[in-house]
């Protein structure tokens, strides 16, 4: 009887979290995938856009975002939640710098046999993405400090 209780209790603890994490992962997936499918994908008919918005880059982004959404929910209420929050912000910053090729994007679409060399300076977008992730990083750091400080708080007499 005692043995059955010990097996069931971690399962009982994990099952709702796993369910919550799966649900959260699905919502996150739809939240990013649907705007991509209906707003970005129609732009692929314009020449050169496939060079600008790579599908592979988007799926990498989607994987990162969904993975961290699931794992952060799975470890919610622990210090790992905040650690993964920090990791997500750092990885996304690196991802954006790589995906934006440092902010300067060169395209060479061919229209009617004539090749156009287009150079887009998207550093303002890159700066905004980095700023967002820096804020997210700061937030996760403060949350981690807050979490640790509360754990160390002496019990009221």
């Amino acid at each position: 009887m005692v043995k059955t209780e010990t097996v069931r209790s971690p399962l009982r603890r994990i099952a709702p979290r796993a369910l919550k994490a799966t649900l959260w992962g699905t919502i996150t997936f739809l939240l990013y995938y649907l705007p991509y499918k209906f707003l970005i994908m129609p732009l692929f008919m314009f020449p050169g856009v496939t060079d600008l918005v790579s599908e592979a880059f988007f799926y990498v982004f989607l994987t990162i975002v969904v993975f961290f959404a699931v794992i952060i929910k799975l470890f919610s209420g622990t210090i790992f939640q905040h650690a993964f929050g920090i990791a997500r912000a750092l990885i996304l910053m690196i991802y954006f710098i790589y995906a934006f090729r440092g902010g300067i994007i060169a395209l060479a679409p061919s229209v009617g046999g004539v090749t156009f060399n287009i150079m887009l300076d998207l550093r303002i977008f890159l700066a905004m993405f980095i700023l967002i992730n820096l804020l997210s990083l700061g937030k996760s750091l403060l949350q981690a400090i807050d979490f640790l400080a509360r754990e160390r708080e002496p019990l009221p007499i």
């Binding site: 905004m128 700023l131 967002i132 804020l135 997210s136 700061g138 937030k139 403060l142 400090i145 807050d146």
Partner: peptide, 27 residues
Amino acid sequence: MKNAVRALGWATRALWVLLMVFSATSL
């Protein structure tokens, strides 16, 4: 601490909205 975290959260959300609106209107 809680207020700082909340402020950062709002700032992040505001920046996301700004970025999305700017991206969509630019495009």
